[in-house]
């Protein structure tokens, strides 16, 4: 158990999320079951009012979760100094069996909540409220994920053993290790980079052709490809060390916190990109989604590409 104030702060906010999302969940279930736009009953009017509360709560949770996620990553980094062997967040994630699942789940929930907001935004734009039932149905599912996340987070912080030696990122993300992550090192770098830039190229083509579904799918693929190529290739140029593959260390001050920028760009780009394909949107909104996605993803690609290029210019060799 770790009783660092950062951890407690996260746990306190989690309990608030839990309390409020529970309220939103109950309202969602009620709305999902009883919603009837054509009814003129007192009950239906009541439900319409309750939908505002549920929506406000969800918006609140999302608005706090977004910066809190960065704070969470930062906290992992901070408590890594407490664990023998860990040098960055990677060690803390690895310290328990739940770390990596929690991280993936957290990220997924951010996407889920983001999509919920999109749906909500579309819903309240039309006087028939066409998506109200759908969005609350969606929240019922999202709530379960949130619940798992909160429980998992509590369990993870509870089960970190300060006295236990953990691995540092150097061993976790090395090609010789046998962990699942190291499987990605079997992919050839050339193949990897072709995939990465190829994926981006397709994205640009779909953007120009305005194929919303293909664009969304290429964005989904981009998350995976971008993360793998970041760990396997681009990261090494950020560290200027051919053997250092850690996706956490560049969050630290030694690398000017560039990791936060990298991940934010990737998240925003792919979020807007996938949003384009998710629901029917007004043309104006979709155009904006396309554009935002392209901008963020574009900046991401330029940023990570800049590291190896500048390295080459300065040193005349590749790593």
């Amino acid at each position: 158990m770790i009783l660092a104030p950062e951890v407690l702060a996260i746990l306190i906010l989690n309990s608030i999320f839990l309390l409020f999302s529970l309220v939103a969940f109950v309202l969602s279930v009620r709305i999902f079951i009883k919603w009837d736009m054509s009814a003129t009953t007192q009950e239906q009017y009541g439900l319409e009012k309750q939908s505002f509360l549920a929506a406000t709560i969800i918006k609140y949770i999302f608005a706090i979760k977004l910066p809190l996620f960065l704070f969470f990553v930062f906290t992992l980094d901070k408590i890594s100094t407490l664990l023998t062997g860990a040098m960055c967040g990677a060690g803390v994630v690895d310290a328990t069996d739940y770390g990596s699942y929690l991280l993936i789940l957290k990220l997924m929930n951010l996407y889920l909540f983001g999509f919920w907001l999109t749906l909500h935004y579309l819903d309240i734009k039309s006087p028939n409220l066409p998506y109200t039932r759908l969005k609350f149905e969606f929240f019922i599912v999202a709530f379960l994920f949130l619940l798992v996340e909160i429980v998992l987070e509590g369990v993870m912080f509870g089960s970190i053993d300060i006295d236990k030696m953990v691995s540092c990122c150097g061993t976790l993300y090395s090609s010789s290790s046998t962990s699942a992550i190291s499987g990605i090192f079997s992919i050839d770098t050339t193949v990897m980079l072709t995939l990465f830039y190829g994926n981006f190229l397709f994205m640009v083509i779909f953007y120009m052709m305005r194929y919303q579904y293909l664009f969304a799918i290429s964005n989904l693929a981009f998350i995976v490809v971008a993360l793998i190529s970041l760990i396997q290739f681009f990261g090494t140029y950020i560290y200027e060390l051919p053997t250092h593959h850690c996706p956490f260390c560049f969050l630290q001050s030694d690398y000017y916190f560039v990791g936060y920028l990298i991940y934010s760009l990737l998240f925003l780009g792919t979020f807007y990109g996938m949003r384009v394909g998710v629901v029917k949107m007004l043309d104006e909104d979709r155009g904006k989604g396309f554009k935002l996605s392209m901008i963020f993803n574009g900046v991401y690609v330029v940023l990570v590409t800049a590291y190896p290029i500048f390295y080459f210019i300065r040193n005349g060799v590749w790593l």
Partner: peptide
């Protein structure tokens, strides 16, 4: 406020069925 029975139409708009924001 919304009617218990019946409807209110203004400018060809069924205002009695408008959601709160509208």
């Amino acid at each position: 406020t919304k009617p218990t029975i019946g409807e209110v139409i203004v400018n060809e708009k069924r205002v009695s069925k408008l959601p709160d924001n509208f």
